[in-house]
Write a protein that binds this DNA or RNA. Sequence first.
DNA 1: TATGAATGAGGCTTCATTCAT
DNA 2: TATGAATGAAGCCTCATTCAT
Lengths: 224, 224, 224, 224
Amino acid sequence: MSSTKASVVDPGMTASERPGRLAAGQDPVKRQQILDGANRVFSQMGFDAASMNDITREAGVSKGTIYVYFNNKEELFIDLCQQYKAALFDGIYQALESNNSDLREALIQFGISLSTLITSNAGIRAQRVIIGVAERMPSMSSSFYEKGPKKGLALMRALLDKHVAAGSLAIEDTELAAYQLSDLFHSGLLRRRLFGQMELEPEPEQIRKTVTAGVDLFLKAYKA
Amino acid sequence: MSSTKASVVDPGMTASERPGRLAAGQDPVKRQQILDGANRVFSQMGFDAASMNDITREAGVSKGTIYVYFNNKEELFIDLCQQYKAALFDGIYQALESNNSDLREALIQFGISLSTLITSNAGIRAQRVIIGVAERMPSMSSSFYEKGPKKGLALMRALLDKHVAAGSLAIEDTELAAYQLSDLFHSGLLRRRLFGQMELEPEPEQIRKTVTAGVDLFLKAYKA
Amino acid sequence: MSSTKASVVDPGMTASERPGRLAAGQDPVKRQQILDGANRVFSQMGFDAASMNDITREAGVSKGTIYVYFNNKEELFIDLCQQYKAALFDGIYQALESNNSDLREALIQFGISLSTLITSNAGIRAQRVIIGVAERMPSMSSSFYEKGPKKGLALMRALLDKHVAAGSLAIEDTELAAYQLSDLFHSGLLRRRLFGQMELEPEPEQIRKTVTAGVDLFLKAYKA
Amino acid sequence: MSSTKASVVDPGMTASERPGRLAAGQDPVKRQQILDGANRVFSQMGFDAASMNDITREAGVSKGTIYVYFNNKEELFIDLCQQYKAALFDGIYQALESNNSDLREALIQFGISLSTLITSNAGIRAQRVIIGVAERMPSMSSSFYEKGPKKGLALMRALLDKHVAAGSLAIEDTELAAYQLSDLFHSGLLRRRLFGQMELEPEPEQIRKTVTAGVDLFLKAYKA
DNA sequence: TATGAATGAGGCTTCATTCAT
DNA sequence: TATGAATGAAGCCTCATTCAT
């Protein structure tokens, strides 16, 4: 479990060392401590096989404390999934949002950011867990998709639209094209990772190569 | 559960009506009856949330009987996953294996077969279930991948190699190209389906359009 | 717990010794076995302090079995209370219902039956348990009262009405008179027993004396 | 919970507003504040279903404070029960103790006081709670009975003895007669209230009528 | 051979009590 | 001194598995 994505919060001291007294369920450090433990357990076991006892042990807090911060197992899971979204997708859209003169370079940069994240150990685990409960908790997987992939797709589509308008690209259906491009970013990586066919995170070089090949394929076919 | 993929086996009579007496755990009809019930329950609940009682009820068999045919819940699940593979991937490689003179048409036919299956309700459920347990049962998801996507990829790569050798395509890395093509088959479909962003199975027309666009993009970029 | 009222059912053999196979939750012997254990625990601890584990142990069945026969702790309790009612009140109204020429003797016989039951160990425990939850489960205590005391009161009132009509008694409010008589049956017994001021069941002689005194007081005052 | 009997103590200011500093667990105002909260919770839930958290909230005191004033839940309950006794029975014996020339009037006055109290909402709740734990905490219910009913009975018996000696009453067993009279005070009221068959407190007029009828029945039968 | 009642470990959650602040 | 966050034992209930019928 050591390669799990590091906690977003790093206060430099444990909850109990911190000065002052916080209201019940209000200590963000302890809250994060629980979420980190839950992350380790949920991403290894999935929602249903994870036990609150496991989480208790992994988080290093007592059972009662977890229930001060989260009403029940499901709410803990939901909060964790929101954190997955934030951790995965926050701040990766810069490459697209900054005003780039060079389309190819912008797409490659964005593709690398995105592929790196979604093929990382943490990213794969998060996606597995969320896909695993998609049938029973559809709202959670929907919201994950909307916060993540969907937003990136919209930005890419807007970028493509701009270039179509400028005459540098010739694309009939830019929505479909955005989907194609986003899939080309991680061809041969994401699916194999999801199904456990690739045990280790892909090397940066491999990601760069895959993304570049995808972008070039895309641009070659769609150039005006 | 009514839209679940129908049983592959249809014996025309129930197990108990059949003549002759079979050794314990040897009646293939009863075995399939159990697998069908298990399929309905596992694909709706996932492995861990499914209960053997649910499966008992859904399959119309007694608990003891299930344990005659399968040693435990996990083995039942493994056998079911093997059936998923067979049901999903058996017989869809014909389009590639038959000697096709027209590459484009062959790819489109294969792409349609593949996309239709893996975006079907049954296909999505099977993938969700398997991805959901990939962390804990890596061998199962691996074998699913190998029987399914991997085989198709190998065939496609061989086809591409042939065309590269024949000079009709110019591809440096045909392995990567096969991955790209396989992803282009279901751009905008598979991921949205997996995350529950698309509730209904895509229409055949939508699949055809997506596959065709993917193949054309691919061929335009890689033509010699 | 040994002085607890004996089981109503006495099959002469334990559930597991009985021949034949009964459907889940359908074996009346096992059901009674559970109710007997529950009776011992609930009447000693009250509803809330009783634990299902205690009942499990006391009944000599496994936890799962209890939940086959009763959906949850509360339903087990409700069924037990209905059994309390039946055990306490079934068949004690004969003395009133049979056509008695001698009013005094009929009242004394009935009073003795009633007082004996409701001051018995089992009767006191049942009343304590039911009074203890009356605030939170009003329907249960209501139904207990209606099946028990209320019915006896109605019969007594009818008898008094008959004698008033016949001119042998002079009572203005026969409803109130019935209440008075029923309280006189156990003067100095019931309340002390309920509050634990009288540890042992009253002797038959003491009950007879109390009932007789009550009836005589009543008749002396109300004779025409 | 609004109809709960008001606190006996009314200091006119909250504990924290009061001047001076009291030793831990020594502030009678705070102590009463806790008992009031405990009363509301215990009388609604019973001892076992009541949680210390509920009491904390209802009393407006912190959990630590409760444990300064009371060693544990049971001791808090015991103290509360003693307060029930005091609240219910203190000062209702005047009607009997003052030198009354008119027996009938004295009995009616006392009966009304007594019946009003023990059929009041607070009185019923207190009795239910105490009866509910009588099996497990016999000393508590005993002491309740001794402080309450028993004392009244002794006074009534003494009064009856006096009148027997004076020749105005003809009673063989004055102890039994006192029990009878005390039960006649609340015929048709107490039991129905305890079992939840009478939701509202009886009207004063109804109490008066019941008591008067009881006393008259009693005196008619026992007059010399 | 097929059945399903029974088992009991283990799941989620609550709550009396403690103790650092 | 008063607070309330933290603890962890124990509560109710479920469920994979067994075995007598």
